[in-house]
Design a protein around this nucleic acid. Structure first.
Lengths: 204, 204
DNA sequence: TCGTCTGCCTAACGATCGTTCGTTTGGGAG
DNA sequence: CTCCCAAACGAACGATCGTTAGGCAGACGA
């Protein structure tokens, strides 16, 4: 579940949270500074006491969310596979998928912005995000290749498989409702099943 | 492959094609009428000789693409399963997935716009698109449920599975390059494998 | 040769955009 | 009580937005 803090920690963070909702619902370009301000009962100009630019707000959301994905993946991968030849790709991938779902479910709004709106950043930041996404996707791809050569996975194109898995996962922010019928853990269960099924191949 | 016609059929269609590229790359809201015109070596105002509004262009792209998805699915489903109790859900789903990939690959730009930018439409049209998407997704879901009760698929949540499959498929416009290393048919092969694997479940 | 029609032009409209500015306000520390 | 400082205000900036209006050039049928 997302934590809209009961006690507002900082005004800055409140702005980012409200902006996450609006950016996710209408997109960055279609959301005006005055829209964000209105949701906080303020005047548009007043935001600039807390923020240096509109893009700055987007960047804060995207960067923070990217870091959360990176940290979650690092935690999974650093605690496993230290001993080569003794790794279990399916088990590690399971934990990686669960971590990914958890990061999304903990802040669906920010995750949705991260997935779709990073294109709106300036050239420099956009390139940075792109490279971080590549690095992240490679962790999936490497794990899949490991499973291919160990015989756990039956595939011929690890890159395509990684993209397909991440596409399915990144569809989550578009429909997942923390208050809906599925808890984040249940969703993660299903996606682990889907992922392993996908990678182990059709049985007929 | 997308068909940017060598002979420009109508000016109107040329506008839609150029708009598809720009809408997909920068989003509808971030693309100005003057941007579209510049790509055609025209003045922004000149577009209005061919078009009644900017949203009208978006609508034409979205509606046309939605219709292509619907027609492709109808062709698959109308030619199968006419005799109940004799259907093969996996085979039908295979054809449905192939049809979906084909529609995307035939016009990646328009498909990308359809997938992401329909939210920018006015309330009425947006609601219409949403309901057509629901109908389309239900065709996948129904087929999955058929496979569940026939024992072909090992799943507990057909709705989640349909969403996951379609999310993976709809990630295609974001990365697929018709001139790249994979033909549309090869991509379809892989996605059929992924889909069936997903639905038949992990084997361990 | 004339009129018409199509396709694009320039100019301009009001609205809204992101952002800057100088000012006001209200609560806490001395 | 007084001072201060962060937070929000209203007004305004130049730019750009989608769109309208009127005119001009060239192709074409009569």
């Amino acid at each position: 579940m997302r934590t809209t803090p009961l006690v507002e920690l900082t005004r800055r963070r409140a702005i980012e949270d409200v902006a996450s909702e609006l950016f996710r619902e209408h997109g960055y370009a279609a959301t005006s500074v005055r829209d964000i301000a209105r949701a906080l009962d303020m005047q548009g100009a007043s935001l600039y006491a807390h923020v240096t630019s509109k893009e700055d707000v987007l960047w804060a959301i995207v960067d923070r969310t990217a870091s959360r994905f990176e940290a979650a993946a690092a935690e999974v991968l650093d605690s496993t596979g230290a001993v080569p030849g003794q790794s279990d790709p399916a088990a590690t991938l399971t934990r990686l998928v669960r971590a990914h779902v958890r990061v999304i479910a903990e802040d669906v709004e920010a995750a949705g912005v991260f997935v779709h709106e990073w294109r709106a950043l300036g050239e420099e930041r956009r390139a940075g995000v792109l490279s971080r996404r590549d690095t992240y996707e490679r962790r999936f791809r490497d794990l899949i290749e490991e499973g291919m050569s160990s015989g756990d996975f039956a595939l011929t194109d690890s890159s395509l498989a990684a993209t397909a898995v991440l596409s399915a996962l990144n569809g989550l922010p578009a429909w997942y409702d923390p208050a809906g019928r599925l808890t984040a853990d249940r969703v993660a269960d299903h996606f682990v099943e889907f992922t392993l099924g996908m990678l182990q191949g059709a049985s007929r």
